[in-house]
């Protein structure tokens, strides 16, 4: 390990380690790219790909992101963008859960979808995308339906869960499982021009109360559909929440909900 660090330090510019050096270190010393990334960060070296993170995220915080395991439940409209952003952020392990394959009606908004991937599993597409954009991140692809029965197993070891589901019933099951595991759940949901975001911490029941009137889901999205920009926006807000919780900065949307109306361009935070 000392030899590895010595090699890398020889290639570093200041404390920044170029990607080529990270790759070469992995090859030369028989380590995975993820392992090398951990070793670099522990030695307070920063993979150069994260250099523009650093005004907001220190090397020590980057190490916390690297060590984190985060579940994304749903790899569709919200999930595609969430996975992209987590991987670029440098979250070490992303568990991507979705039972579905891409269909034509996904193409208007789902980042991981493409005509060539119609019929392909969404979780598999997530795996391929993360391998392409940040091979130092481990993506665990689970082509399974999440539910209260298998939830605890699927989320094992995760520091938090990010809701990218498309229905209310499973969202409530996710909330139940997160509560049981005592981990926060970053909630996001969209419908047409509208969206909402907040984080539910263990012991809280905001989600259950918000969805009390319509568990079997007459969500406005059934009639409004979803354009391309709403999932991108809500996904980004969810990742910002997740990032803050993982590195312990800022104020999450706790006990308050962000409501987004892109038609009238009104964003407001209301108490839960």
């Amino acid at each position: 390990m000392n030899e590895l660090l010595e090699f890398v330090r020889g290639q570093a510019k200041g404390d920044l380690v170029p990607w080529e050096a990270q790759e070469e270190a992995a090859r030369r010393f028989g380590r995975s790219l993820a392992q090398v990334e951990g070793l670099l960060l522990e030695a307070q070296l920063l993979p150069a790909r994260y250099q523009r993170n650093r005004q907001g995220i220190s090397t020590a915080q980057q190490l916390r992101l690297h060590r984190a395991r985060v579940a994304v439940i749903g790899c569709g409209g919200l999930g595609g963008y969430i996975i992209e952003e987590l991987a670029r952020l440098g979250v070490g392990t992303i568990v991507a859960i979705d039972p579905d394959v891409f269909e034509e009606h996904n193409l208007n908004r789902q980042l991981l979808s493409a005509p060539a991937r119609l019929g392909q599993a969404k979780s598999e597409a997530a795996l391929a995308r993360v391998a392409e954009i940040n091979p130092a991140v481990t993506l665990v692809a689970l082509q399974q339906a999440f539910g209260r029965d298998n939830g605890a197993e699927l989320l094992q070891g995760c520091a938090l869960a990010i809701d990218a589901l498309d229905n209310i019933r499973v969202r409530l099951e996710l909330a139940e499982v997160c509560d049981r595991l005592a981990i926060p759940m970053v909630h996001g949901a969209i419908a047409g021009w509208y969206g909402q975001v907040f984080t539910q911490f263990p012991g809280e029941d905001h989600l259950q109360r918000i969805y009390a009137h319509g568990v079997d889901g007459k969500g406005a999205e059934k009639t409004l559909g979803n354009p391309s920009f709403t999932p991108a926006l809500v996904a980004s807000l969810e990742v910002a929440e997740a990032c803050k919780i993982l590195i312990g900065v800022g104020e999450p949307l706790r006990g308050r909900k962000l409501i987004i109306d892109l038609l009238d361009m009104e964003l407001q935070v209301v108490p839960l």
Binding site: G74, G77, D166, N167, A189, G219, A220, E221, N226, V270
Partner: peptide
Amino acid sequence: LSLFPLVGGG
């Protein structure tokens, strides 16, 4: 009194 519709998509 404020009324908000159910939003459940993803």
